[in-house]
């Protein structure tokens, strides 16, 4: 029995190693073979509709559990709440943050059948076993995003996809309307990565991380502001300060410590929220002491930032 467990663990280790080894190649292949930064021209000024209605653009980047097919219901619920509180915001959800070409796991890729099976199985069985594979694959992409060798390429691809999505939703760079990148969990890292390039636009770019796990990345300095929403019972969020030396206090010249000194970063205590599951940032069935649900509180905080009240 013990021997089988060892074999199982070894097999798991080999598979995870294989994931990690091939992780950078999607971004590298895009860069070296398929790169195409051609973007559609900005719309004519007289073609613009609802110019005053759209006051800002909010791009939501999901966490490592995402397969790119669709967001979870609780995430849609949260975004609906944000929209209610900030009606002038255009909410954009069609960027999959763990693919440099915005290709969902079930899209055109060799292992699409495997990811589709995992995605279906996890919806049915609600087992961590099926969640694990998608999570492990996406964690590797977060590592690519934070790696100084691959990150610049990966982040460029994501920034391009975000920019494309913004244009698709009526964004006009000439109007300089503010952009908010909201990243949940590992999506926070990707949001900061995309900010490295999107800040080249004339719009104000603000990053909001919800339980964000991220490294010390130049996007922290380049973004107008970075708001980190952190639950007091969220243990996962501490992986960032633990794993990335740039977030340690002994690296005073890192982007994170510089951004903190310049007052660009604000940490928002969200109360006793956890990272994922019942009691996380999007939960509707658990309330704070004041009777507000966790989902409402998170939406309030995000909307306050968007409405300029924070």
């Amino acid at each position: 029995m013990t021997a089988y467990l060892w074999y199982g663990a070894a097999l798991l280790g080999v598979i995870i190693l294989a994931f990690a080894l091939v992780a950078p190649f999607e971004a590298l292949k895009w860069w070296s073979r398929d790169i195409d930064l051609t973007l559609p021209d900005s719309p004519q000024l007289d073609e613009l509709e609802n110019e005053d209605e759209h006051q800002c653009y909010v791009v939501y980047l999901t966490g490592i559990g995402g397969s790119g097919e669709s967001l979870a219901r609780r995430e849609f619920g949260f975004l609906d709440r944000v929209k209610e509180r900030a009606p002038g915001a255009v909410i954009i959800t069609d960027v999959f943050p763990f693919s440099v070409t915005n290709n969902p796991l079930t899209g055109e890729r060799t292992l699409a059948w495997f990811w589709a099976a995992m995605h279906k199985a996890r919806l049915k069985a609600k087992s961590i076993f099926f969640e694990f594979w998608i999570g492990a694959r996406n964690v590797c992409q977060v590592a690519v995003c934070s790696d100084p060798r691959y990150g610049p390429i990966y982040n460029l691809g994501i920034a391009k996809e975000v920019y494309q999505a913004l244009l698709n939703h009526g964004y006009d760079p000439r109007q300089r309307k503010p952009i908010y990148l909201v990243g949940y969990s590992g999506g926070g890292q990707v949001a900061l990565g995309a900010a490295c390039y999107l800040t080249r636009l004339m719009s104000k770019v603000t990053v909001i991380t919800v339980g964000g796990v991220f490294s010390s990345i130049p996007g922290l300095l380049l973004a107008d502001r970075v708001h980190c929403l952190v639950g007091s019972r969220d243990r996962t969020v501490w992986l960032g300060p633990l794993l990335f030396p740039g977030r340690w206090p002994i690296s005073p010249r890192s982007a994170w410590n510089k951004a903190k000194r310049r007052g660009k970063v604000s940490i928002v205590n969200m109360g006793p929220m956890i990272h994922s599951g019942k009691g996380d940032y999007f939960t509707r069935s658990v309330t704070l002491e004041n009777g507000k649900t966790y989902a409402d509180h998170t939406a309030d905080v995000v909307a306050d930032i968007i409405n300029g009240e924070r």
Partner: peptide, 16 residues
């Protein structure tokens, strides 16, 4: 240098 090249490419596109 991927970073320099990426910035140059993006800026070229944004100037279009």
């Amino acid at each position: 240098n991927p970073k320099e090249a990426a910035v140059a490419l993006l800026e070229r596109e944004l100037r279009r």
